[in-house]
Each structure stands twice: as C-alpha cells, then as structure tokens.
Design a protein around this nucleic acid. Structure first.
Ligand SMILES: [Mn+2]
Ligand SMILES: [Mn+2]
Ligand SMILES: [Zn+2]
Ligand SMILES: [Zn+2]
Lengths: 145, 145
DNA sequence: TATCCAAAATCAACTTAGTTGCAAATATAA
DNA sequence: TTATATTTGCAACTAAGTTGATTTTGGATA
C-alpha cells in the first residue's frame, strides 16, 4: 500500500525496537497493493531471509493490538492484514466471490456511515468494517467471453 | 431469531428434502437470539439427538450457498450463522472487543449505504457486510463498577 | 573488552475449525 | 422386491494459528 511511512520512526513512537523482522513485515505490507494473508507475508519475507512462522504471527498480532495494522476478517479461513498508518485510513473492501480477491475501496462512504452506527444500543463503537461482496471486474470479463 | 418461518415450506421452495437434521439446524437458528457458531449449533442439536459434525457442516455450507443462511466472518476463527429469510433481512452487526458478543443491528443504515457502494470500479456488488466493533453495553457497566 | 540481561526469535508440539473420501443407512422410484 | 439416489456417519486429514519452553541476540554494565 505504498512506502510513504517511515517505519523505524513509526515503531519508535510505539516504543518497540525496530528489529530486522519487524521492519521486514512492515516493508512487505508497505509494498503490497492489497491486504495480505499471514502466509503470503511469511513467504515474501522468506524470499530474502530465514524466518519462523511463529515470529511473524506474533508480530502481526502485536502490531494489530497496537493499531499499527488492521486485521480484516474475510470469508476465507485466513484473515488479511494491511497497514493502518495515516496514509491508509479505514475503508470498505470489495471481495469477489469468484476469485476471492479483496480490493480496497474509497474511504469516503465509510465516514458518512459512521454517524449512523455510532453508539447504538448503548454500545461504544470505535471501528466499522464494511465488506462488499460480488463479482469483480476481471471475473465478469472472463465470464462474458 | 424468531420462529416466523415455515421451515418445511422454505426447504420445499429450494427443492431440498426437509430431513430431520436440516429442520433441526433451522429450528436451532430460528430459536436463537443472535448468530451462532457451527459448534454451538452442533451442541444444541446434540442436546436432543445424535449427530455427526460433518453432516452439520455440510448442511450449513449448502444452506449458505442457497441463501437460506448468511455466514458472518468475524474476528474469531469460527464464523457465525444466521437465518436469511424474509423476516431477517441483511443488517449490520456489533461485536464487542471485550466479550466477543455479536449483536444484530437495525437494517436501515445498511440500505442507505447500499447506493454508495454499488458497483464501484466496475465490480458487480451483491452483498454488503458491515461490522461495527467496540465495547458493548454490558462490558462498559462491568468496567465502570 | 568481557559479561550479563531482557527482549526477540526459534522450535516442536498442540489446538481449533473445518474438509475429504468413502462406507453405511435411508428414502424414493421402478 | 430390487435398483438408484440422497443423506448421514466415520476416520483420517488439512490449514491456520497457538503455546510453552529454549536459544539467540543486541545492547547496557562492569
Ligand atoms: Mn484495505
Ligand atoms: Mn444478524
Ligand atoms: Zn474476481
Ligand atoms: Zn462485551
């Protein structure tokens, strides 16, 4: 999702050491054009160095709790991760039910939605996930030919 | 989510036989006040009769593909199931990050959202899932005392 | 520079949630 | 009744993630 962020600084602000592995996780996600599964992140890091999957899972978990990453629950069994820095505000996603691809959508409709759902039934809401499902552009082209 | 539906007729319309097990799955979900995990459905059926988990998973899967049920992807590893009949139109959900409880919210905001997200980027959207997360009513009370 | 320490990473083993292939049972048709 | 199709059950397997214990490492201290 672009490399606009200064990852070492981002980690410093959170009070965590910028280890090679933590930076590798952020760099993989920073270079990605869409949200990635833990397995994909692991493989991409393994293209460059040796890593244990447990370390990656623990880093993803920690980053998600700290708000450095967002974890997206999708229909598949594995969840997806994306950067949650200021350059990537929360936004809806589109998942194709044919190919499974998950695209990031424009954040605008989400902010309009916010007021509607804020604090219903006495709950204190602090996050909205929107997932739009259907058939993507590409899959429609394939089906039409 | 209430027993307003005539399950045998619902199944007949879908061209599937109304077997005892299929009806048991629908009755459990019809009586539930919130969406249930496969494991919970299994246990509730087992309180009355002997069943194999595979049969339940296969029924849940088949019903979801037919649109009799909706499968909700949540942050936990197991997904949730709810009836998708005319008495339970699609709606947003609220999940508490403390206790994990998932509540069904009012369908209204979802229909307002629909127009906004329909067919972005050339995709053909046919479903919107909205999940609101935060701290629920109950958990807030506990925290305040 | 050597030694110590806490944080980070690794390893093997385990768990959870679901899946697969095939066999047995049950229902329906001929 | 016999044949056929559908449904359910059983055992074994898989994918994704988790746990607890151990080893490694990057600094701080002496
Ligand atoms: Mn995204
Ligand atoms: Mn619901
Ligand atoms: Zn597609
Ligand atoms: Zn709660």
């Amino acid at each position: 999702m672009s490399d606009l962020c200064d990852f070492p600084r981002l980690l410093a602000r959170q009070g965590v050491k910028a280890t090679a592995l933590r930076l590798a996780v952020l760099e993989v996600l920073g270079a990605a054009t869409q949200a990635l599964r833990a397995q994909e992140i692991l493989e991409m890091i393994r293209a460059r160095r040796r890593v244990n999957k447990v370390s990656v899972y623990r880093i993803l978990d920690d980053f998600t709790r700290r708000g450095i990453l967002r974890r997206l629950a999708v229909d598949d069994r594995a969840s997806l991760y994306e950067l949650a820095c200021e350059h990537h505000p929360p936004h809806p996603h589109f998942q194709c039910r044919q190919c499974g691809q998950v695209q990031c959508l424009d954040p605008a409709p989400l902010s309009r939605m916010w007021a509607e759902l804020q604090g219903p039934l006495g709950n204190r809401a602090d996050r909205i996930d929107i997932r739009v499902a259907g058939i993507c552009h590409k899959c429609r082209e394939i089906a039409e030919n």
